[in-house]
């Protein structure tokens, strides 16, 4: 509005241009003013904490630069917990991705998109993918803990005794993680399976391809990038999960998030602060690498859309 009145009041092209540039400057100022609270908030509560972790990893208790914290990363039990963390995340991600992927395919196969079964499973999955932590631990303790319902039933009907400590073993932890990995895979992978048109298969068959050729030549090249990027998402998801493990393991620090917990709670030793930060820093690095890989794959997948 202002630009027109100003420009008509002042003859000549120069006036018009200067008014336009003034307007665009005002627009930019307006955009900046509206964006400022968002960026300020994120800087204070996301960038600053991350910065504290990264810088703190290189600081000694006396605030001097040091690489000593990193030496503790190579200690045997730290390495072991990283190994366990990565193994648990990888196995639960693989199981989750395969089972969830199959389930997503089964949901699309020959079913109506608004079908009842599909709606139920999708709704259930979107709730259960977020279902972690204490409540999940309770669910599994009630199922297969010492006094769990399934434990009792197995004992009564099959005379099979479940190891009471099974839930706090690695295979138990992996099973519990699968409970949120499979639903997460279903909701992230379903759109990819949906994008496969049944007509493609028909076209394939009318051109003489068999099932095997269809999968190798058509379905896999389309689905694989999305599958792997979903797999990486699942990996990052279970690698950063803390609450479930914290509720299941009360004492032992067998995975990295629990080690961080131990380091945070141990306030007697000032060196622990740096240790927590260096562990957190290492976690950021692992997750960042995984996310970067996933981003590259997404880019590659974008070509198919």
């Amino acid at each position: 509005m202002t630009s027109i009145t100003v420009a008509s009041g002042r003859p000549g092209e120069q006036g018009l241009r200067s008014a336009a540039s003034r307007l665009s400057r005002r627009r930019n100022l307006g955009t900046a003013a509206v964006s400022l609270p968002f960026f300020a908030y994120v800087a204070a509560f996301l960038i600053l904490p991350t910065g504290i972790v990264v810088v703190g990893a290189f600081l000694s208790p006396t605030q001097a630069f040091t690489l000593d914290n990193f030496k503790r990363l190579t200690e045997a039990n730290t390495l072991a917990s990283f190994g366990t963390s990565i193994a648990v995340s990888l196995i639960s991600a693989l199981i989750g991705a395969c089972v969830g992927g199959l389930a997503a395919y089964a949901l699309v196969l020959g079913a109506k998109p608004e079908g009842l079964i599909r709606r139920i499973i999708v709704a259930l999955s979107s709730v259960l993918a977020q279902f972690g932590g204490v409540m999940l631990a309770f669910a599994f303790i009630a199922t297969i803990g010492i006094n769990g319902i399934v434990t009792m039933m197995l004992q009564q009907f099959l005379h099979f005794t479940v190891n009471p400590n099974w839930l706090s073993s690695l295979s138990g932890l992996i099973t519990v993680y699968c409970y949120f990995q499979i639903p997460l895979m279903i909701i992230t992978f379903l759109p990819a399976v949906d994008s496969i048109r049944p007509q493609w298969r028909e076209a394939c068959e009318s051109l003489g391809a068999n099932t095997w050729q269809y999968w190798i030549r058509i379905a896999c090249p389309i689905l694989l990038p999305r599958f792997i990027s979903a797999l990486l998402l699942l990996f990052a998801n279970s690698f950063s999960a803390y609450a479930t493990a914290a509720a299941l393991f009360s004492q032992r620090s067998i995975i990295v998030p629990l080690m961080i917990q131990g380091a945070i709670r141990n306030e007697m030793d000032p060196g622990q602060q740096g240790f927590a930060q260096v562990l957190a820093f290492a976690m950021i690095v692992v997750v960042a690498v995984v996310m970067m890989l996933s981003h590259l794959l997404e880019k590659r997948f974008a070509r198919w859309q």
């Binding site: 994120v42 996301l46 904490p49 803390y242 998030p257 945070i264 930060q277 562990l279 997750v287």
Partner: peptide, 28 residues
């Protein structure tokens, strides 16, 4: 262009595990 920055920043917390955030949030 700024919208892409906002998207990147808003989805950044997915990349930073909550347990890591806690370590940095502790002093704050």
């Amino acid at each position: 262009r700024l919208a892409r920055v906002v998207e990147w920043v808003s989805t950044l917390p997915l990349t930073i595990p909550a347990i890591v955030l806690v370590v940095g949030l502790g002093p704050i």
